[in-house]
Simulated assay, not measured.
Amino acid sequence: MEKQRKDGEVEAVPVVIGGMVLDIQATSSIPPHPRTTCPGQIYYVQGGVARNIAECMTKLGAQPFMISALGFDMPGKLLLEHWKSAGLRTEGIRKHKDIKTPTVCHILDVSGEVAAGVASVEAVEMFLTPEWIQQFKHTIHSAPLLMVDANLSPPALEVSCRLAAESNVPVWFEPVSIAKSKRIAPIVKYITFASPNEDELIAMANALSSQNLFRPIERNNCSTDTLFQMLKPAIWLLLEKGVKILVLTIGSDGVLLCTKGESISWRNCLEKTQQHGFSRQLFENMTSSYPSNLYCDSKVLERSPNFLAVHFPALPASVVRLTGAGDCLVGGMIASLSTGLDVMQSVAIGIAAAKASVEVDSNVPSQFSLPTITGDARIVYSTAKLLQHQSKL
């Protein structure tokens, strides 16, 4: 099933493993009330954390290999046809008559935030088995990066990470939800990148500690510096347990990028990179005219003896819906890393991609504008702020 080049080698492309989901998104035009209906709009949207990330990567010029599972039902046919129409590969997508294609129903409030939702995604755990994933071991071995979402069962996560480790392939763990984020515990030693929000960070830290030491943060309109200080113990625990680079999303305040200061983490950390069309232009634009910024000076970062954290602000946006923002942030980052951009540049691209996603009805924009993405990324990069740069907490 694995695609090989003429020389017999398996093609080196990023691998994404996780759910493809049909999102039924209901947006109320007035504040919803319990026990009654309200006027609004209902949309069928191609979704799923892993699927969204892979589609975003594709539209930024990367060529990810998707490993997932779909049924022959209406949601499955809709998702597969959209995937094929985008010219994406389907060899890694398991299709079976017994699969009930994952479906999620979201109720969105007037601001575009999820007010409530119901998820039927059991098929990801039931049919994305270790045996199915094992079939694509050579593709994983050749990948510049492997992304797994926490919808996978613990055994599937374990075999995916182990296959990556056999060839020193960096692993990106996307927590998906508070409950599923805890699945990081048995595999944390394999994780290079993790991308939680604040609540998922707390859940992951508790799963990795001997007892529930951490409590959800009450923001109360606090500053980013204050929020960072409150989250720092949980951040540090994840880094101590093995996560190399933490990409912490903090909503409209942007992203906190944290590491224990290994200098290689801040340069291009992927041994294998590829550039195709859009991604080549993206790489050239970002490397040829990047603004100078004291906080993002690579020499400063490489001198960091231990703990380092940088805040990247979010961009102003005309919000339509927020459901795809986190996935496009991750997709933008992985696509950028896969072209050879460094982590700092990739965060900026990710935030620019996230901004584009919240301004459209779909989880992933139908296309990205190269001038807009690079222009927005330069703004984010140039306003990044160093929060901590020291040897001890």
Rank of each mutant, 00 (worst) to 15 (best):
F228H: 06
Q229I: 11
M230L: 12
K232F: 08
P233N: 07
A234V: 00
A234P: 00
I235S: 01
I235V: 02
L238P: 00
L238T: 00
L238S: 01
E240H: 05
K241R: 15
V243G: 01
V243H: 00
K244A: 03
I245L: 11
I245S: 12
V247M: 13
L248W: 01
T249R: 14
I250L: 05
G251M: 07
S252A: 15
D253P: 12
D253W: 09
G254A: 02
V255S: 06
V255C: 06
L257M: 12
C258A: 05
C258G: 02
T259M: 07
K260Y: 09
G261R: 08
E262M: 14
S263G: 11
I264K: 14
N268E: 05
N268M: 08
N268Y: 10
N268I: 07
C269I: 15
L270M: 11
E271H: 15
E271T: 15
E271N: 15
E271Q: 15
K272D: 14
Q274T: 15
Q274P: 09
Q275V: 10
Q275N: 10
H276D: 11
F278C: 13
Q281H: 09
L282D: 03
F283N: 03
E284C: 05
E284H: 10
N285I: 04
N285R: 10
M286I: 12
S288D: 10
S289D: 02
S289A: 06
P291A: 02
S292A: 06
L294F: 08
C296I: 09
S298V: 13
K299T: 14
K299P: 06
V300C: 05
V300T: 09
L301K: 07
E302K: 14
E302G: 15
N306Q: 14
N306C: 13
L308Q: 13
L308S: 07
F312T: 04
F312S: 04
P313W: 04
P313G: 09
P313H: 09
L315W: 01
P316L: 06
A317H: 10
A317K: 10
S318H: 12
V320T: 13
R321M: 14
A325T: 10
G326E: 06
D327K: 04
L329T: 11
L329F: 11
G332W: 03
M333G: 08
I334D: 02
A335G: 04
S336E: 00
L337V: 00
S338V: 10
L341N: 04
L341S: 07
L341Y: 02
